[in-house]
Design a protein around this nucleic acid. Sequence first.
DNA 1: GGAGATTACTTCGCACACGAAACATCTCTC
DNA 2: GAGAGATGTTTCGTGTGCGAAGTAATCTCC
Lengths: 178, 178
Amino acid sequence: MTDAIHPELESLFAIQGAEDQPDMDGVVEAILYLYTESRRITKGLAGRYGLTGPQLAVIKMLEPKGQLSLSELSWRIRAKNSTVTGIVDRMEREGLVHRRRSKQDRRVVHISLTEKGAQLAAEITVEPVQIFRTVLGELSTRDTRDLKRVLTRLAQRVRELVEEGALPSDGAAGDEDG
Amino acid sequence: MTDAIHPELESLFAIQGAEDQPDMDGVVEAILYLYTESRRITKGLAGRYGLTGPQLAVIKMLEPKGQLSLSELSWRIRAKNSTVTGIVDRMEREGLVHRRRSKQDRRVVHISLTEKGAQLAAEITVEPVQIFRTVLGELSTRDTRDLKRVLTRLAQRVRELVEEGALPSDGAAGDEDG
DNA sequence: GGAGATTACTTCGCACACGAAACATCTCTC
DNA sequence: GAGAGATGTTTCGTGTGCGAAGTAATCTCC
């Protein structure tokens, strides 16, 4: 099964500690935990039906829409086309989805569920998100709002800094060897 | 280069929307954004030195310690041994690290930086975490504390629920609502 | 209306990432 | 001290995940 904890994130924050701002560790650790735990839950749920995480995502994405182009699918699951091509390949091989060339624009490929895929989708009713909704529901309204406010602000600032180029997001330099 | 946005998470939360708790979307989106952005930054930084994210993690992990067993390394970067074996293989091939069998326990393999690896480690002084520290620093103390408090509570509750088996993490079905 | 740019998708090569199983070594028990 | 079990690492198979380059179709601009 495919899983991934993505060590970089951990390491990213673990490097050389941040003793001068102890609060940050808690924040980062919590974010990391929530992220990885949600992945584990998704994986476990998908695995019961012989699916992988991304495959479950695709199926549940297609279920209400009927069909989506590969690009739409990519956008929705936040992956690149080349990644989704592979996922769809394997799902097609398993008989879960169909590929159909669009007649309007023959570059476009429409992905849709097969009978088998649709049945499977209908069978999977549990939403992993339920857990998080439950837990968030247990927080006071004020807490939830605070959380959203602060997190959103945080994300916004990072986004601004990234766009300003103040961050080492990418750039030129030096040696390359593969 | 290795990268991964991990579509499952997005999809996990995107499935069927959560209109009844609009606040959640913002929270989830912010967490997702912070996670993916941090990964992008790490990747960009590592890429400048011809490294991948996990490789940078390993190098910076080894730098202060001198050497670590493969298992210790795995534990620290939150990955499995079989994953780290591959990472170390590639780094060894690039001449960045050494493998050495322990004399105390000949099952154990110690990983240490080569000259080249150590030089590279010394060269990489920028901490990606800096950005987040900066941004968190811009928040008021109150905001930071609130954030930590709420996030920690959130993570704690999810952890509890997971341990209670109330979640579809794996194994038998717990709750049904569909 | 045709050359060049753009868009949609696929292919290829590489690097994770995991679990299961194989191996080697150590430890524990009798 | 020999067998049973535990532990550390590697090997294998599968599935993401990305970027670069390739192909085909559409669009744009002159």
